[in-house]
Design a protein around this nucleic acid. Structure first.
Lengths: 123, 123
DNA sequence: AAACGACGTTTACAGATGTAGTCGAATCGA
DNA sequence: TCGATTCGACTACATCTGTAAACGTCGTTT
């Protein structure tokens, strides 16, 4: 519910914490993807913004802090998916799926995989 | 390609122009959705920002301008959808479908529809 | 004990965004 | 023709975002 928007840069940090937590700020910086070569101060700024947005929490460990995500990746993904669908597809998910399926060059293997998945989903 | 991001507020304007164009700034303001009750100056600012982003163009009509979209809604939708899939699903279509299916955002009817779509795509 | 290093906090600053006011030119109504 | 209205252009300003430097503190090394 904490519907403060998480920015692109902040999302990079969240992804790291979703993969493994708790981490110190330095640990997070060490795990940045190659295309995000930020300085430690930058990482700290982002972490503190995420704190005020209540997207992460921290717990003291001696003199440093260990950060952990407070929001669930699943929830975030759902929220953002819904946001896109609301903005661009009148709130309906099907058109998004149809659109992507049309755009994407799906291999026959991909298609079979999805069909398999759908078969399992269908109750 | 004009990959300047279109903001939320700007998108509101684009939607109006995608529905009908060309329109004057005043016309656009008159067609704002109820939840976007902006002043005329605001609409004009957004239009001029869209102009510099090359998302719309204008043509003089006497003393006013008639605005028309320069980018296609389809292209924009594709671009944004791809962006979401890249950001949240590692660029892969399958996890998105899986996520939606798990969240039960897709009804059985939707699933059947997707299956149909996939069958048609399989060459 | 002094210097150094690691941390978190505070401050900075440019660009994007949301939202709108002001101003000068042109037009329309009387 | 003269004031009122209409336009676009320019300016404004607070907030958010990306990115980082400066500062103060506390623990560590010599």
């Amino acid at each position: 519910m904490s519907s403060e928007r998480i920015s692109d840069a902040e999302l990079t940090i969240m992804e790291i914490l979703w993969e493994r937590a708790p981490l110190t700020a330095t640990d997070v910086a060490a795990r940045l993807p190659d295309d995000r070569d930020w300085s430690l101060p930058t990482v700290k700024t982002l972490l503190s913004r995420l704190l005020t947005k209540a997207a992460v929490e921290h717990r003291a460990d001696g003199r440093r802090f260990l950060y952990s995500p407070l929001i669930d990746r699943e929830d975030y993904v759902s929220h953002e998916s819904k946001r896109l669908v609301d903005r661009l597809f009148g709130g309906r998910f099907m058109p998004l799926v149809a659109h992507l399926a049309e755009q994407e060059k799906l291999s026959d293997a991909d298609i079979s995989e999805i069909e398999q998945l759908l078969r399992e989903m269908k109750s």
